[in-house]
Computed example of a mutant assay.
Amino acid sequence: MADNKKQQLTIWGRANSVNVQKVLWCLAELDLAYERIDAGMQFGKNNEAPYLAMNPNGRVPTLVDGDYVLWESNSVMRYLCMAYGENSPIYPSQPKARAGVDRWLDWTLSTLQPVDRPVFWALVRTPVEKRDMVAIQKDVDAEAVVWRIVEAQLATRRFIEGDQFTIADIALGAYARRWLGVEGVIKPKLPNLDRWFAQFAARPGFVQFIAPPMT
């Protein structure tokens, strides 16, 4: 892959967004060069006309690759793997193996993200004096039900889809960092999840983009 092609990659989005973090981790796994431009929340830009022309949702991240623009973080990861990761095992080419990865990418957005968001916002982005801990614990309990699905999946495999680390582990791992990182609530013991998490916690992309303190 030509260096000048790699240099065309631009990611719009703030570094503390879980969806931006997934893409940055994927870029690190693929060893791709890129430019990142802060956008969203305190940085603004995402509700301005130039950004909305790229991404009408006004959300982050948005990928710009030359004259090609793509939004939706999991779609961005898929694209990066297909366009630049031909020899990378993180997005397998065999149909059944790829479909297995894809289902977890979809599941992360359809099932995990909706129960993660209220817990994360309440325990990370809400001042302590404004937290309703009874309500928050109910949300934690609801999220725990979903993580038990991952726990059961990991009972018979090293990573979420077998012995190989994939972008499904990136998508789930970014949310697992939030789940394992929040404090002051009661969470069930999930030993398979803990073991799985420990396997990738030292990967450079995780250390750089996922592990820093949550904000």
Rank of each mutant, 00 (worst) to 15 (best):
G162D: 04
K6V: 06
A135L: 06
K5N: 13
L112W: 11
F43Q: 03
N19V: 12
I170K: 04
F159E: 02
C26T: 15
V150Q: 06
L193S: 05
D116Q: 14
K5E: 15
V182T: 13
N87V: 00
V115R: 14
R158Y: 04
D194Y: 03
R178S: 02
A142N: 12
D38S: 12
I136T: 14
I210W: 02
L52R: 13
V146K: 15
Q153A: 15
Q42G: 04
R195D: 07
A198M: 00
I210A: 07
R131A: 09
W12E: 03
Y34W: 12
V76P: 06
I37G: 09
L190P: 05
K45E: 00
L193C: 01
N87A: 14
W25A: 06
G100P: 04
D141R: 00
K138S: 12
E129I: 03
D163I: 02
W25K: 01
K187W: 04
T215E: 09
L123R: 03
A2Y: 01
F159V: 01
A168K: 02
L9S: 07
T156Y: 12
I90G: 05
T10N: 01
M214G: 00
E48F: 06
M77P: 10
R157D: 00
Y51G: 01
S17M: 08
V18E: 08
P89T: 09
P204V: 10
I170P: 02
A176N: 06
A39M: 05
A33Q: 15
I11Q: 09
S75L: 11
S17W: 09
G44Q: 09
I37C: 09
G181P: 04
A122I: 03
P61S: 07
A83N: 03
L80S: 11
T10Y: 00
E29I: 13
Y84V: 01
I136L: 07
W179D: 05
A15K: 14
R103H: 14
C26Q: 01
A142I: 00
A122P: 01
R14N: 11
C81Q: 11
P118L: 05
A211N: 12
Q42I: 10
D102I: 14
D169Q: 02
V115F: 13
V145N: 07
D65A: 06
A211D: 13
P114E: 11
L24G: 08
Q113E: 15
M54A: 08
L154S: 04
Y91K: 01
N46C: 11
G100N: 15
T62D: 02
G40V: 05
F165R: 08
R177E: 08
S73E: 05
P127C: 09
N16H: 14
V185Y: 02
G13S: 10
P50I: 10
G205V: 01
L32N: 12
T166V: 08
Q208S: 11
Q113W: 15
D38Y: 03
A142P: 00
P212Y: 08
